[in-house]
């Protein structure tokens, strides 16, 4: 455990973020632990409401409070627990240490400032550069994210850019202070496929260039397969499976992960005569206010057993860092 925390740059341990409302307590993130290794891409995958974005918001201290609150756990960044820092201390880390990009670049860029203004603000605040130097640095960043004619673009407003360009501008802003960690929350979901390919390619290259660790949050297992070194699968606020990417796709253990993989239409499968119908996961994601008593996937699981309904399985390491939260695999280990 100690070794693990040393190697990792960001270590989330038993994080619990709950939302308190009139309907009750929504346990959006409920005991999530994982580590981010320097220079790696950690993919976090899950469907809406699984807690993948709230986990990222907890790291950045962006959970809206009220109604949300981090009620337990630790988030270590360079051996400092981010949850114990003051607002000022956290502000220094945001941007310079950990940067974040969001799904919809139009809503996360400020529409009344030029992009040059917004990017150079990073340099002025964190690197204490003067106005002119900061603008020059902003132009340099735009060039590095391959925005054509950056000298012109730097004076434009977000609405003058296309969706892909805006996301590039967001990435330029996030990377401007050379952060150690980039948290990307569904960075390509709002983009067209050909533009998504460009952005993924860009993120790949920037990762090499800046040797940044990336925490990539997405619902798309295809994006995970392309980008991630390590994958965390979340369901209803918990980690259900975690492994290295190739291991996860080739030796899938959790029935939910299996279901997810089987339910994606893959280009060419029908033509090549593979399965005529997609495999469905029955039912729907449970409400966070009304979770099943035992395993949270038990009401949809095709392999559900009696014990699943009343007892929540632990996340167990099956060897080689492949962790799974399922009674099927505990039993195998015991017998």
């Amino acid at each position: 455990m100690d070794q693990k925390t040393q190697a990792s740059i960001l270590s989330i341990q038993n994080l619990k973020t709950h939302f308190f409302s009139r309907k009750g307590v929504a346990r959006a993130v409920d005991g999530v632990s994982f580590d981010l290794i320097p220079g790696q891409v950690l993919g976090i995958v899950g469907e809406s409401g699984c807690g993948k974005s709230v986990t990222a918001q907890s790291v950045m201290g962006l959970v809206p409070n009220p109604p949300g609150k981090v009620v337990g756990g630790k988030i270590f960044f360079h051996h400092r627990d981010l949850l114990t820092l003051t607002v000022q201390e956290l502000r220094k880390i945001r941007g310079a240490g950990i940067a974040m990009i969001f799904q919809e670049p139009m809503t996360s860029l400020n529409p009344v400032y030029t992009i040059g203004n917004q990017i150079s603000e990073m340099f002025r605040l964190h690197k204490k550069l003067g106005k002119k130097q900061a603008l020059a640095a902003a132009i340099d960043m735009l060039e590095r994210v391959q925005i054509p004619s950056p000298h012109k673009r730097v004076h434009e407003y977000p609405h003058q850019l296309s969706g892909g360009m805006r996301q590039r501008a967001m990435i330029a802003m996030a990377m401007s202070c050379n952060p150690e960690i980039l948290i990307a929350d569904e960075p390509t979901t709002a983009l067209d496929v050909t533009v998504q390919a460009q952005i993924l390619d860009l993120m790949h290259r920037l990762k090499e260039e800046f040797s940044t660790a990336i925490q990539l949050i997405t619902h798309d297992l295809g994006v995970i397969a392309e980008m991630a070194d390590q994958v965390v699968v979340m369901y209803a606020g918990q980690v259900v499976e975690q492994a290295r990417t190739v291991e996860l796709f080739q030796h899938t253990l959790h029935p939910y992960t299996r279901g997810l993989l089987a339910s994606i239409p893959v280009l060419g499968h029908r033509t090549l005569g593979k399965d005529e119908d997609l495999v469905e996961i029955k039912g729907m994601i449970p409400s966070l206010y009304d979770l099943p008593a035992g395993c949270r996937f038990s009401n949809r699981c095709p392999k559900v057993m009696d014990m699943c309904k009343n007892h929540l399985p632990d996340l167990i390491d099956m060897g080689g860092g492949h962790q799974v939260r399922c009674w099927l695999h505990t039993r195998e280990m015991i017998s």
Binding site: V195, A197, G222, A225, E226, L267
Partner: peptide, 25 residues
């Protein structure tokens, strides 16, 4: 072809080189 190659395939063993288009529509 570009459209087909741009779709991420959910299989890390098939990380193929994609055709990356320049610019936007």
């Amino acid at each position: 072809r570009t459209l087909m190659s741009a779709i991420p395939v959910p299989d890390p063993a098939r990380r193929t080189r994609r055709i990356i288009l320049k610019g936007d529509v």
